[in-house]
Design a protein around this nucleic acid. Structure first.
Lengths: 112, 112
DNA sequence: TCCATCTGCTACCCGATGGTTGCACGTGTC
DNA sequence: GACACGTGCAACCATCGGGTAGCAGATGGA
């Protein structure tokens, strides 16, 4: 696990709200499965229209979880793990922060 | 970091959508700061009404990120790191999964 | 006991968002 | 060149979710 500088807060925010939607998570799953896929291929597998998939891919792209490139007349998308790892580390850091704060308060309550 | 069994998918989903809202993140921040706080105290600090805070605390509670107990006529809430750690681990696992799938596909593309 | 205060509903408003349909525009194929 | 297929864009709809206001019910303090 390479040690990148901490993710900016709004990048984390975008990842979180992108990941909050179940359909989006299913899209990511399907994408990770195939390595690469087009919006129409994903629409064939999931119970939503192609246009809905396209919208979701746009959001996932802006969050940096996915990247697309044009190949002939179709545009293929693939998954990118980097931002997800960043967000996981952010979350771990926050959890650790909570832990230490709670411990400090507990010490304080017990009279130093 | 203790090794709990993997968090169920819908618990992760609840944490993610709870964390997706900026106001909710600010509430968690403020809560972690003070160790404990009431809804009215938080409403005094944040730019939303007490009722909004109450709703958010309800969502955070259902996600398991927060717990409240009644003390006299006021109900105090505190933050709970456990679910956050679970979700971070889930996220790390998914990212690792993506990585290995991408690697496998790359090997395949390069002809075994 | 009376009052102030804090909580816990309920009803309501409005903007964001997930979803759909329809159509026009490239691009590969015969 | 004609056709098929995939994409991209725009309009539109319905629901969900964040936010507010108002009121009734506890609970501690004077």
């Amino acid at each position: 696990m390479t040690q990148r500088p901490d993710a900016p807060a709004d990048a984390v925010a975008e990842v979180l709200s992108a990941l909050a939607d179940p359909t989006r998570r299913r899209i990511l799953d399907a994408l990770a499965d195939r390595g690469e896929a087009t919006a129409t291929a994903l629409a064939a597998e999931l119970p939503v229209s192609r246009q809905a998939i396209v919208k979701h891919l746009g959001i996932l792209d802006r969050a940096g979880l996915v990247a697309g490139h044009r190949a002939g007349r179709e545009s293929r998308y693939r998954v990118i793990p980097e931002r997800l790892e960043d967000t996981a580390r952010w979350m771990d850091r926050v959890a650790a922060d909570w832990d230490s704060r709670l411990a400090a308060i507990k010490r304080l309550a017990e009279g130093s």
